[in-house]
């Protein structure tokens, strides 16, 4: 089950929508649940669905449709590097390569110490600031030169 605190946060989201449209809060609720649990297991998705009074499979549809939900455990820091064309033109792939070498992992892998997971991202909507990467879905880092990446990794550790 989710903590009181998480449920309170979910309630705040629910309040944004008309009273008979609780399901609208499912995306935010899953984000809150993921923040709390680290990733979304079956039980958690089911709990969120029950809390919002929607079919569990409907919540599962949502959890599997949007990229940023993690349906399997990830490292403490999930780094998502954009390699889409505009970024690739300005170092996106280089940044990813640098990270792969530095962390010793490929995309969709987690470092043995469980600290980092590397993901390939689609357009993050910050193409002018390439290379860009996203830390744990929420923090965007721009102009990620090797020095910046080194700094970020040091800061995470």
């Amino acid at each position: 089950m989710l903590s009181e605190d998480a449920l309170k946060k979910i309630d705040r989201e629910v309040a944004k929508y008309p009273a008979d449209q609780k399901q609208s809060a499912v995306m935010a609720a899953l984000v809150i649940a993921q923040d709390e649990k680290g990733w979304l297991d079956r039980e958690t998705i089911g709990d969120v669905a029950d809390y919002l009074g929607m079919a569990q499979i409907a919540a599962y549809e949502v959890a599997t449709f949007y990229n940023m939900y993690d349906l399997a455990p990830v490292g403490k820091h999930k780094l998502t590097v954009c390699t889409n064309l505009p970024c690739a033109l300005s170092g996106g792939v280089h940044a990813a390569d640098y990270l792969k070498k530095k962390l010793g992992i490929d995309f969709n892998e987690t470092t043995p110490d469980g600290m980092f997971t590397l993901k390939e991202g689609e357009c993050l909507g910050a193409c002018g600031d390439a290379p860009v990467l996203l830390v744990n879905n929420k923090r965007m880092c721009c102009f990620m030169t090797p020095e910046e990446i080194d700094k970020l990794i040091a800061e995470c550790k």
Binding site: Q23, L30, M54, A58, V62, F65, N67
Partner: peptide, 27 residues
């Protein structure tokens, strides 16, 4: 006015997918 967060689906930029998404469904 309220903010609704997306969570990683390009298709939700399409207006009707976006509306579905606000309704708490797949986009």
């Amino acid at each position: 006015l309220f903010a609704h967060q997306g969570w990683g689906a390009y298709i939700c930029g399409e207006e009707s997918a976006l509306l579905e998404s606000i309704e708490g469904k797949k986009g």
